[in-house]
């Protein structure tokens, strides 16, 4: 069961890596990141369920990952908005340099 779950999580993570690296649009990159975090949640719960004897710290880690997801989304969208306002950039190729 743990093997199966880990293979599924690895597949989700691989798709996330592909998306985050290949997409040009900022928002699509964020979707790749979210998929990777999704896989992380699955792995953490798998190990919590199968190998730790129900140690609640495993569940706590999931709560922390959920907070990280929210933080990533909030800061990501705020940055996209700010960059779009100042540079009219919506894809990574338009941001050749980060300084003004």
């Amino acid at each position: 069961m743990i093997d199966l779950l880990l293979v599924i999580a690895a597949a989700i993570f691989g798709i996330g890596v592909y998306g985050a690296l290949s997409q040009q649009s900022f928002v699509m990159i964020m979707m790749g990141l979210e998929l990777m975090l999704n896989a992380a949640v699955l792995v953490v719960v798998t190990f919590w369920w199968g190998t730790t004897g129900g140690n609640p710290s495993g569940q706590l880690l999931v709560i922390v990952i959920l907070a990280v997801m929210a933080i990533e989304a909030a800061i990501g969208f705020a940055l996209v908005t700010a960059v779009y306002r100042s540079r009219k950039a919506d894809i990574t190729e338009k941001l050749k340099k980060l300084r003004n």
Binding site: V7, A10, F13, G14, I15, Y18
Partner: peptide, 10 residues
């Protein structure tokens, strides 16, 4: 990168 990370992790 995607396929590689999948294979390694799996």
């Amino acid at each position: 990168a995607g396929v590689g990370s999948f294979l390694v992790l799996a």
